[in-house]
Amino acid sequence: MEEVILQVNHLSKSFGSNQVLRDIDFSVRKGDVISIIGASGSGKSTLLRCINLLETPSSGEILYHGKNVLAPGVKAPEYRAHVGMVFQSFNLFNNMTVLDNCMVGQIKVLKREKEQARRHAMEYLEKVGMAPYIKAKPRQISGGQKQRVAIARAMAMDPEILLFDEPTSALDPEMVGEVLNVMQALADDGMTMLVVTHEMAFARDVSSQVVYMNQGVICEQGEPEALFAHPQKQETKDFLSRFRKG
């Protein structure tokens, strides 16, 4: 078995009186590609945002290599530099070119030399097929292209694990494929990934584990073949059948 990178124990999150996550337990091993599926409002995105500390969990612990990142004294920016994140709305820096978007984190956070950062950024921009566009500003490129740049930006930080928060939900249907292709290639390269998605085909074909969330709890979890072919819980069956019809 590969080493456990991330372990989530009894994680809960409430916004006021509204409890969004309830007692979540799961772990991520090196090389895992875990898809998190579930209806809107089931807490998938909140879980991902808690893992990246963009939301502060109400209780529970998040162990990164066995160390609780919620403990006082742990610097969130340092931890986040190891955990990449790709957002539904891309969140590229609008004031920078494509290349600068992929360099700024390396220079400011990892303190790399400019030239080294540029080479490293170009490596990933080439991988996602955005190398010709390095001089463009985010407003000048399409959604699919933005998302590919966002993936390159996250990868350029050499994260140990990459979180995807519905990376294709804001894209036109024609552009979904190009982003999923890039993600598939990352998975093939052995990248550890945690993907919140509505793309059932991606969850089934690419991931090594599928987590089904319902109303803030992990309802069912397992290998994709098993979970999609023989869901154990009634809620999972209902959810999957709704998707097949839709």
Partner: peptide, 23 residues
């Protein structure tokens, strides 16, 4: 400024000052 810009900067490990100055 769209909060997404701050989140994007935080997600690559920038602290408050870096986020402010660069983004």
């Amino acid at each position: 400024i769209d909060p997404g810009q701050t989140e994007g900067a935080k997600a690559i490990g920038m602290n408050h000052v870096q986020t402010m100055l660069s983004v």
